[in-house]
Amino acid sequence: MIGLIRELGAQVTTGVEGLGRVARFGGHLLSSIPRPPSRFGFFVRALFDAGVLSVALICLSGFTVGMVLGLQLYTTLTRFGAEEGLGAVVGLSLVRELGPVLTGLLVTGRAGSAITAEIGAMKSTEQLDGLRMMAIDPMHFVALPRALALTIAMPLLNGLFIVFAIAGAYGVGVWRQGLDGGVYISGLEDAVLFGDDVGQSLLKSLVFGLLLGLIATFKGHSCAPDAAGVARATTSTVVTASVCILLADYVITALWST
């Protein structure tokens, strides 16, 4: 029994220590934003890696999710004679929930894991120590541009995901199921409010990007400097960031509703 309590205590202490390290890392990251020199070139390169290289995946995923959503919802709505509401339901579910969450999970799998692996590899080959020995802060040089790039890329990719998903649902609802195109669009326009729904969507994706940027760079920086350590950190980034995104989604939705 005492052993169990001791084990539990150790787990809690480790967890709290971990949170403290993340908070300290985040604080260091934030405090290095205004510090010169500007890392704009590295930021643009990181934005290209995290954003532009994710565009195809996001568009394709968005389109297929929209198609599935169009098909499922049309069938369900037909049962209640409410198929005209397809545009509204698709729009609201995508803008409020599916867009930011699915984009967050997809970007976590593609760009977040890549950033952790890259920083982890830099650590295991002493590149980060090399930077320190040149009196260059690796946090400012390596982590900051990548974390900022993820934060900026996420809302943009979210917008792209939603547009393609709406198009996918339109394709299925209008061309395959025979719903009137005007009805679909007007339903969408009437239901989705810019301030309430689009604002919530943007806020969510911004928070998800921030969380992913923090987690991906932290895991890379704190991984064991060997191949197994990098692999563990990459997996941990995907798991931790995915759970954090889902939790944050609930928290933001709950706060927004009150």
Binding site: E126, Q127, D129, G130, L131, M133, A135
Partner: peptide, 15 residues
């Protein structure tokens, strides 16, 4: 460290 140069065993060049 601005006054110290270091050659690492594996080079540690930014790849």
């Amino acid at each position: 460290r601005k006054g110290i140069g270091m050659l690492f065993q594996n080079g540690a060049l930014l790849d």
